[in-house]
Amino acid sequence: MTALVLLEIENGAVRQASRSAVAAAGAFGTVDVLVLGHGAEAAARLPGVTRVLHAEALSDALAEPAAALLADIASGYTHIIGAATATGKNILPRLAGLLDVQPIPDVIAINDADTFIRPIYAGNALATVRSSDSIKVITIRGANFDPVASEGGAATVEAVAFNAASQVNAAELLSVNLSTSERPELESARVVISGGKGLKDAENFKLLEPIADKLGAAIGASRAAVDSGFAPNEMQVGQTGKIVAPELYIAVGLSGAIQHLAGMKDSRVIVAINLDPEAPIFRVADYGLVADLFTVLPELESAL
């Protein structure tokens, strides 16, 4: 069996979510990876990777040519794997469509080559499913697989050509608007502090920043905080946002709706700060403080 992992590269490095996908792929035997655009050198240094296939002319921003290339090279593989990120979820189901297989998204555990566990109903149930497809197309939840290291491997790099890219009926990328932040990535941060509607406005949401600075934490948000414009969309944690499982998750002024819990309830230690003792977030919290966040946050900042 050989698995192929679609890697995502960010600032010249392989994203942690992709390194988790490489770790998961190890369960299936030999691991090859595909790099679209830059980053083949970084990919070649991943431990456990045999071959790096490098399609320099393509980009993971465009699903149509990326999926078409994957479909072209798929026949050599039993498993084609990506991270369960916005990029992975854009490209891999399309590949599954081209191969006429049923994709297996958000895998959190691998029982054997055909059998996988994945959450359904916002994580309120875990389904064990067996696939009868000859090529399994899978996305992996990074939070559930320890990533391989960034260094230590020495894979060979082979260029792959995809001449038909211009013939694929595809969307065209016009512009990209990335938030710049000095803070760690949400999905890989050791500590996450998230704010909700209780912070009341965008100005107050900044109260989380000095604490995040002190803890080296990433900042997250509930959907309500995003909808109210306190925080940008990419900070959303939950069923339809990012899935995180840090060592420490601090939930401030958010109620803990099922959809939010879906994104953070596997964190190791959860702290909840909320005025309402009945807030569902307390049911998953290891430590709860029923208090006004506007008094707690400044106190916390000076106590750290």
């Binding site: 309120n124 149930a125 499913v129 309830k265």
Partner: peptide, 16 residues
Amino acid sequence: RLTTISVAEPAERQAG
């Protein structure tokens, strides 16, 4: 193409 073998509750967290 997928057969559901079983569906289970996720592990409950200990009360804090």
